[in-house]
Write a protein that binds this DNA or RNA. Sequence first.
RNA 1: ACCACCGUAGCCUAGUUUGGAUAAGGCGUUUCCCUCCUAAGGAAAAGGUCGAGAGUUCAAAUCUCUCCGGUGGUGCCA
Length: 579
Amino acid sequence: MKDPWQKAREDVTKAVAEVMPRLAIPKTHLKKLKLANHIEEPPSYKMGDLACSISFPIGKIKKVSPRKIAEDIIDKVRRPRSVYLIKLAGAYVNFFLKFGEFAKAVVTEAQKDSFGKGEKQKDKVMIEYSQPNPLKAFHIGHVRNTTLGESLSRIMKEAGHDVIQANLFNDIGMHVAKTLWCYKNFHEGEKAHTNVSKWINKIYVDACRRLEEDPDKKEEVSEILKHLEAQDEEEITKLWKQFRTWSVDEFKEIYKELDAHFDEDFYESDLKPRGKEIIEELRKKKLAKRSKGATIIDLKKEGLPVWLLLKSDGTALYSTQDLALAEEKFKKFKIDKSVYVVGSEQRLHFQQLFKTLELMGFKKAKKCHHLAYSLVTLKEGKMSSREGTAILYADLRDEMMKKAMSEVHDRNPEIVPKVQKELAMKITIAAMKYSMLNVGNNKTIFFDWDTALEFEGDTGPYIQYATVRAKRIIEKAGKKSSANVDFKLLNNKDSQRLIKQISKLPMVIRESAETYQPHIVANYTYALADKFSAFYTTNPVIEAETPELRNARLALVIATYKTLQKCLYLLGIEEPNRM
RNA sequence: ACCACCGUAGCCUAGUUUGGAUAAGGCGUUUCCCUCCUAAGGAAAAGGUCGAGAGUUCAAAUCUCUCCGGUGGUGCCA
C-alpha cells in the first residue's frame, strides 16, 4: 500500500490481463502485446482515471474493429475492487477509481515519512559533482552542476540507494600556473578587499590577456607548472597553497549557501602522482605509447580518437587524474557504481576514459556513467572565465538578493531586518536552484537577468509559497487529529486532481533516480504546488461548511504539505517559515 | 569533414526512453477576483506547419531515413 497509484495501475492491468486469454489471440502475437504499456492515463479526468488502449493492436491482429474488441473486453472483464466504473470510449476501455478509497489510501500514505521511499538497494553509488577550479571563480555553470548533483544525490538516496557524495577540486594545472605566474610578476603584494575569488579571477583573466599578447611567456608558465607538480620549489608551493586555501575556503562558504554536502573531497594534486604511475604501467603493457613527445593511448580500434594522457613536457591532464580517481573510487570506497556529473562538452573525454579503464582490465568500467548536462550560456554566446565574461555566482546572488529583499520588505515590514535577510536568502537560492533544475539535463540554459529575477509562475518561490500556505492552514486549524476522516467528501475536481498528483510521488522518484533526471521531480513539484493552489482557493479548510468537511480537507492539506516538504528537500530547496 | 546534443505559440520550457483520445505549463499580452486560511495567489481569453520532407503504423511531437538551423567536441585547455 505504499504506492496507491502503482496499485491502481496493477489492479487494472491484472483485470485486463485476465481477459486476454479469452480473446483468442494467436500465441505468437500475444507476447508482443505489452499490456502494461497500454494502461495509460486519459487526457482528461472526465474520461476516467486509467485507460486501456490494447483494443487497437488486438483489433489489428484479429482484423476486427478495435471498438468490437473493447466491447468484448468490457463484457468479459472482472471489475477490480478499487474500481467503480468501467466505461467504453471509442475503442478505449476507461476505468474510474472508487475515489473515496483511493483518497483514503493516498492521504494516509502521504502523511507518513516513508511515502515515496524506494526499497533499500544493495549497491553503493558515488556521485561526483561540482568540481570547481580553485583559483578560478565559481560561476553559474558550477551552480547548475552543484544543484543537479546535490538533488540527484538526495533523489537516489530516497529511491533506496546508498550514496556517497563526492567533490573534486581541480587545484593544479595550467590555470593555476598562469595565475601564480601573473601574480608573481605583476600583482605581487596585492590583496583582495572583499571577494577573494573575484580578485583571483581578475589575475587569471589578466594572465590570459598577457599571454595572448606575449606567447613567448608561456615558457615561464610551463616552468611553474612543472615545479608545482614536482613540488620542488618551496616558494611556489607555498604561494600555491595559500591561494588554494583562499579559494577552497570560499567555495565551502558557497556550498553552505547552496546547501550542498559532500562526504568526500578529492584533490587533483593528490591524484596526479598515482595517475602518472598508472600511465607508466600502461606504457609497459604497450597500451599507451609516446607520440610527438606526448604520451597517448590509441583508441582507433575502439572507434574513438587518440586520447592524450601526458603533455610533451611531462605535465598532467584531466585524463591523468581521472584514471587515478576511478581506481581510488572503486578500490578504496568499494563502490558499485560511479556517476560523474560533468558538462556535456566532456562527453568524448569520458568515453575515452571508460574505454581505457576497460582496456586496462578494470572490471567496473561498465559501472561508470557520465551524467552529461549542457552549458549555461549567455545570449552573446559561451561564457569564458579566461575572458572574464562568466556570470559569477556571487554577482547573481547579490542581484537576486536585492530583488528578494525589496519583496520581503514590502510584504513583511514588521519582521526584523536580520530575519528578512534570511528569508530573502532562502528565496534567492530557491529561485536560482529551481531555474537550474526544471529543465532537462541536455538543454542549454540561456541565462538572462530578467528571467533570473522572476519569482512568479513556474519558479522556486512559487513552490515555497504554496508550501508556506499549506503550513499556515495547518497551524491555524490547530492540532486537531484527523481520525475518522470521511474521504468521500473530497469529491470535487480540485481535490481529486490534487490527490492524484500526490499519489504519483513514488513513481516520480523511481523514474527520476533511474534516469538521473532531477527535472522530473522539479516538474512534479511545480504541478503539485499548482494543484494545491487551485485547491485552497476553492476549498476553504478552517471555514469549511461542516466539521466533517473541515476534517477531510485538513487531512488532505497535511498530506500535501508533507509531500511538498519532501519534494523541496529532494530539490535541495529550503522551506521558509513565512513569505 | 566527422561525431554528439538541441530545435514544441512573441520568449522560455514539459511531454520523446515505453507511439495512443482535443499537444501541457510558465513569462509576456487582454479581462476579471483581496469585508473570506498571505494576491510571490486564483479564474478566463487570445496565441501552434511540434525545424522541413519522406517512410513505418490502425495511430507519430514521440520510431526510421534524408535535409536545414543552432551549440558543443574532435592530441598538448579545463
